[in-house]
Amino acid sequence: MSVRVLKPGLLSSLQDRGRPSHAAIGVGRAGAMDGPAWQLANALVGNHGEEAAIECTLLGPSLHFEQAAVIALTGAPIAARVGERSLPAWTACYLPAGSVLQLGGMALGCRSYLAIRGGFAVSPVLGSRSSDLHARLGHADGRALGAGDLLPVGPSDPLHTLPASRGVSVLPWGLDPQPWFDFGQQPIALLHGSHWGQLDEASQQRVLGGSFIVSKDSNRTASRLDTPRLRLREPLELISEAALPGTMQLPPSGQPIVLMAEAPVTGGYPRIGQVAAVDLARLAQRRAGDTVCFRPSTLEQALARLAEREQRLARLRRYIAQRLEHPE
């Protein structure tokens, strides 16, 4: 069974958890920008959890399903229809063989996830099916999905809570997206970076008290933030050290950049902050032109919030798995 890409959308790619253990040979992590949304999309179709899903950016693809499939959409709210029927997100949908799913634009946010029961089963590269667009690793040498691409789907059993039918059918229940999508664009927790103390006072105040605009140059590698120029007390000459997602760097332009999923593995710019891991998915959902505000956080607070979210996510995934298997 496979899914054919009819129209690729703006920038769609296959993503899973990524390649977290190859940085020493220059291979970055990549993986889904909004991790919880990716995990919940998989959970909603009854996948084990690590399957590759399609990450859509701003405008989704159109897809042809050769055979019947169960899919789920999560992340940024996205227009989705099969023929005249529009599909809800944050639930599972059954699509009969021959369906054409047309994904449209996102009302807000930047990235939506489409998971399919069985998962997109392209050959893994270094243990992951993620496309690293920058390092050109993954499906079709790491390029974004293109028209005509045929995406294989892994084997799966039918889902008896969503039995085969002639037309599209949708589960009678779904998830509340509220805790998992940042509708209110809340301030993002920022830890001090190694060189925070070298920022001048006005710049420190601007980072934690002002607001930034996401630049149109933002992508899966980095979110670039527009602001009046931030300045260091004196120039710093640094040697390259390992870099990681969430790091807020200050290049000589004075416009900070926050490294994202496809962060390079090494970098030599001053590190003025670190976005709390628990809030990285929120930043990933800000599109060009959106506002970003930061609030200070300690490492302990960030760790506690991360642990709490992981527990909540695990509980929710167990609940979904049970409810998919044992209807009412």
Partner: peptide, 10 residues
């Protein structure tokens, strides 16, 4: 995961 650089290990 250990990531060595010039003068540091992550």
């Amino acid at each position: 995961e250990c990531v060595p650089a010039y003068a540091s290990v992550l």
